[in-house]
Write a protein that binds this DNA or RNA. Structure first.
Lengths: 143, 143
DNA sequence: AATGCAATTGCAAATCGTTTGCAATAAAAA
DNA sequence: TTTTTATTGCAAACGATTTGCAATTGCATT
């Protein structure tokens, strides 16, 4: 099991490569995504974007996130509790531990769990297309 | 890893013990839940209930499911794709493999995965409150 | 069996997160 | 700079679920 270290992607380059226009709202949103390491939801991104340019709409945030998701630049997660949350897609697969008190997300990866999942699916006659492993926990109190 | 075998619960007794009234709509819904082994969503339950008594409303289905959930008699799962799905809560914990083509749900349990999850959480300084492990797969083609 | 009253119902409207139609605006190609 | 077309903000629509409310119904009591 090991935690994961992130590196900054160049979203603007990715979008340009996809042939979409680099507009002012998009530039602001991409900037926010680039400088964040957590897992914000659309509303959080919208608020941070509004602080930079108050004319940006929530719709544009959603549209931009959908665009980035389709390009494979970000991942959308439906953790418990309403809103979807986003994170940059930096190649390496990982699962999530969500702090139920703060909402913080810790990424982790376990080859052993992945292998067991494969084993189980095979035994049931299935090929795994994707999976979802989320641990919801609380920080252990110092004893 | 082993699959799970279900046994019929007496929902009506559980409700009565909780001091709620056994109404006609509730009796119909409980009957449907008792005789099903799959993981229906509220709309499916509503449709099956409507076939028995067309005056039953979707609201009542939702209210009854919430009631049973609060009593711990059923579990609610937010698998991918819109609606929540329900299953009887028969003590033993299990995870789910969802057939992405049919929506079928196969239950499984792995002590080894559970142990690894605990290990990971501990290493990160957390206690697991609950977790979600869902495998989304496709039936392996006979080769 | 008739009564009384709180629990339960069906309905419509509200909610929440997200998406969409549309006319106005702005990128970027010419 | 003009033109073309993508993108925007807005408001309205959306789908799943919940809720307020007046009407109904279980059921404990006579």
């Amino acid at each position: 099991m090991n935690q994961h270290a992130s590196h900054k992607p160049d979203y603007e380059k990715e979008l340009r490569r996809a042939g979409v226009r680099i507009t002012r709202p998009r530039r602001v949103i991409l900037g926010i995504l680039t400088e964040t390491d957590d897992h914000p939801d659309a509303m959080e991104i919208f608020q941070r974007a509004s602080a930079v340019d108050s004319s940006i709409s929530l719709s544009t945030v959603y549209r931009t996130m959908k665009l980035l998701e389709e390009l494979g630049a970000i991942h959308r997660h439906a953790f418990e509790g309403g809103r979807a949350r986003f994170e940059q897609a930096d190649g390496d697969h990982h699962d999530h531990l969500i702090d139920i008190d703060t909402g913080d997300v810790i990424e982790f990866h376990s080859d052993r769990i992945e292998a067991l999942q494969e084993e189980i699916a095979r035994a049931l006659g299935y090929d795994i297309v994707h999976h979802r492993l989320e641990l919801y926990g609380r920080k252990r109190r110092k004893s």
